[in-house]
Amino acid sequence: MFEQQTIIAERDADFDVELHAMDNAFQPLTAANAAPDNAGFELPRAVWTSMFACYAVFFGAIAMATGGSGAARFAIVISVLYTIIYFGVARIASLQAGPEARSPLEQGGMLDTWTGLMDKRAVYGQVLIVPIAVALFGISILIITISLGIGG
Rank of each mutant, 00 (worst) to 15 (best):
I144N: 11
A31E: 15
R11T: 03
R11W: 04
N38Q: 08
F137Y: 06
L148T: 11
M118F: 03
D14K: 15
V123L: 07
P44D: 06
I141G: 07
A46Y: 11
A63D: 07
T115L: 12
W48R: 12
W114I: 03
L105K: 05
A56G: 14
P36Y: 03
S79N: 08
G149W: 08
V57M: 10
I143N: 06
Y124K: 09
Y82G: 06
L95Y: 04
A93L: 10
G67L: 08
K120V: 05
L111D: 02
Q126T: 08
A71H: 07
A65W: 02
G152M: 10
E100C: 01
L148S: 10
A9G: 04
D14Y: 10
A63M: 11
L136C: 11
F74N: 13
A135G: 01
C54G: 08
L43M: 07
G68A: 06
Q5W: 07
V127N: 10
Q5H: 09
N24V: 05
S94A: 13
G152A: 15
V134M: 08
G98K: 00
K120I: 02
G151Q: 04
I146D: 11
R121I: 04
G116Q: 10
A63E: 03
H20Y: 10
T113S: 14
I132E: 03
A46D: 07
R73Q: 12
A122L: 04
F59I: 08
V77T: 03
T30Q: 15
Q96L: 10
A90G: 10
A75H: 00
A72M: 14
P44E: 06
L128W: 02
V130Y: 08
A39H: 04
R11L: 14
L136A: 15
T49R: 06
L43E: 00
G151S: 13
I84G: 13
I141C: 13
E42Y: 00
N33I: 14
M51E: 10
M118R: 15
V57W: 02
G138I: 07
A53H: 00
A25T: 03
A9S: 09
A56Q: 02
S94G: 03
V134H: 02
Y55P: 02
A93P: 01
R121M: 09
T113W: 04
V17Q: 08
N38Y: 01
A56E: 02
L142Y: 14
A32S: 12
L111M: 12
W114K: 08
L19G: 00
L29P: 00
I85Q: 09
R91E: 07
N33Q: 15
K120L: 09
A9N: 11
G98V: 01
A122M: 09
V77I: 10
S103V: 06
F137P: 01
T115E: 15
A35F: 02
D37Q: 13
A71L: 15
I146Y: 06
Y82P: 00
Q126L: 15
M51H: 05
D14I: 13
Q107F: 05
P44R: 07
E106N: 11
T115K: 13
V123A: 11
S50N: 09
S50K: 05
S79C: 09
E3N: 14
Y124M: 05
F26A: 09
A13I: 05
R91Y: 07
P131D: 13
H20E: 14
I76E: 01
